Amino acid sequence: MKSSDKIKVGISIGDLNGIGSEIVLKTFEDVRMMELCTPVVFASARTITFIKKKLNIDIAFQGVDDAAQAIDNKFNVVNVWKENVTVNFGEETEEAGRHAFLSLQAATNALKQGDVDILVTAPINKHNIQSEEFRFPGHTDYLAKELGGESLMFMITDTLKVGLLTDHVAVKDVAAAITPQLIEKKVRIIHKTLQQDFRISQPKIAVLGINPHSGDGGVIGNEDEEIMKPTLEKIRNSGKLIFGPYSADSFFGSGNYKNFDAIIAAYHDQGLIPFKTLSFGSGVNFTAGLSKVRTSPDHGTAYEIAGKNEADHHSFKEAVFKGIDIFKSRQEYEELTQNVLKKQGKKI
């Protein structure tokens, strides 16, 4: 931590034509948030002034030219651009995509340099953000490249945590993408993040089958019998509490998910449909496995309500809370690890 005890929360503004700016402003309209952290938004004073007036959101802010200049007890806005930007709520535009990337790039650089402690990203449009500099399916892959580590999309609430073996992969390509190496890697990431980021010393992890009814003994596909089961057995033999594969259709409805610290789904919708059904509006997308902490709300740009002052900001607020909690947990874990190594007389 730096001279201030408050955690600096870097915030990328997302697609300006979506609800990102609205949920950011509504979150910090509550001045009590400034007692918890120092928000640093990467956008521009002109743009934020226009949006807050348009949405009638009562929030004062401090414009700064660099994240290192951010002031405690203020809502800080880093001037990433100075030109006037046209905001057309509800429309997908090239201009909005370009400025979403500029904000994300600046926020990520500040995170790498230590000028902010964590990153919370407002929603982007995965189509209009594409450019020579951003050729990724989404935030997760971009941040994995920039920050280093083995990334994993991890959807979290206090009582439900769902990770994905494959995330933004077409359904027709899922089975071929799942290998023993991928399963072992994702289990390793989730096991470590549960320990270091969520204070769970002996995590219990469930894995969902790839096929309906986990293949029904090979009747509905052989991937679960030939790939999933032997790989999970190997992991169990290493000492990890890993269970499955479970039939995905009944796993959540039966309440079985409550018996585990985390669940690993084989593909995007297998995990995110039940997660969002059970927790929509309070869930958080956490990128596990990175060298830095990044969270985001569990929804997209919501063009259909952008500019109408109807957006629910609670998922974004939860993303801020969870990011701060994870940052503190990780600090405690690192300190504990260092103390153990010192006692063992090993070099750190």
Rank of each mutant, 00 (worst) to 15 (best):
T287G: 01
D141W: 12
D5F: 07
I57M: 11
I183V: 11
K308D: 01
L36Q: 13
L143G: 01
A248M: 07
H191W: 08
E133Q: 15
S214V: 09
M33D: 02
I13D: 01
S254P: 00
S201T: 12
L182N: 05
I19A: 03
Y246N: 10
I227F: 07
H299I: 04
G215V: 14
G97M: 12
K229F: 11
N237D: 11
L241Y: 07
I11Y: 13
D325K: 08
K292T: 02
G149C: 07
I210W: 02
Y267S: 06
T277K: 02
V77R: 15
I156H: 03
K54I: 09
R135F: 14
A266T: 11
A43K: 04
T193G: 13
V31Y: 06
V340Y: 10
H191C: 01
V284Y: 10
S254A: 12
V40H: 02
K52A: 14
K276Q: 07
V174K: 07
I227Q: 05
V293Q: 07
A302C: 13
I264D: 01
D66H: 15
K2C: 03
T277Y: 05
D261N: 14
G209H: 09
V169C: 08
T287S: 08
P297N: 10
V320L: 06
D216V: 13
D158C: 03
K346P: 00
D249H: 10
Q130A: 11
R330M: 03
A96H: 11
E310V: 04
R98L: 09
Q202P: 00
K192W: 09
S21Q: 03
G90I: 12
I264W: 01
K343I: 06
Q202Y: 09
T108G: 14
N339F: 03
I242V: 14
I235P: 00
K8T: 04
E184N: 08
Q331L: 05
Y267T: 02
S254W: 04
S250F: 12
E132T: 07
E233D: 13
A265P: 00
V80S: 06
S44F: 12
A170W: 01
N256A: 14
M33R: 13
H299V: 04
